[in-house]
Amino acid sequence: MIILVASLILFLVGLYAIITKRNMIKIAVGFSLMEYSVNFLFAIVGFRPGAVPPILQAVEVGKVYSDPLPQALVLTAIVIGLGVTAFMLSLILRIYNRIGSFDLEEIQRLKG
């Protein structure tokens, strides 16, 4: 319970960066933080106390295994996250090339 709420707080830290920061790199950092917290939440949901990884020849009675399904969903999401981060960085690089700044307020002022 307390772990789930703590990863929600990590999500809120990322959301705080996205909403209140005026620097585009900070916004990208906040986006990555949100992504990490969601991945971590999925892994917590698949976990049981005292579990071992789901890599086995045959199920042994008395052993607890973690749920393979959330792990499989997160496995692809991590790589997608890198692609999304790279796309965001390329957009930031392009805006910097045009404007010469990471500052969102300056961009608004220059664009009128």
């Binding site: 892994a43 071992v52 295994y65 792990q71 496995l75 991590i78 960085l89 690089l93």
Partner: peptide, 26 residues
Amino acid sequence: MLAAPDLAIVQIVIEVLSVVFFVAVI
């Protein structure tokens, strides 16, 4: 710690690469 070694391998490599991308832009 959450018994997900597959995710740990992917995460540690992707994290290195993502920091490399950020640093390349900065």
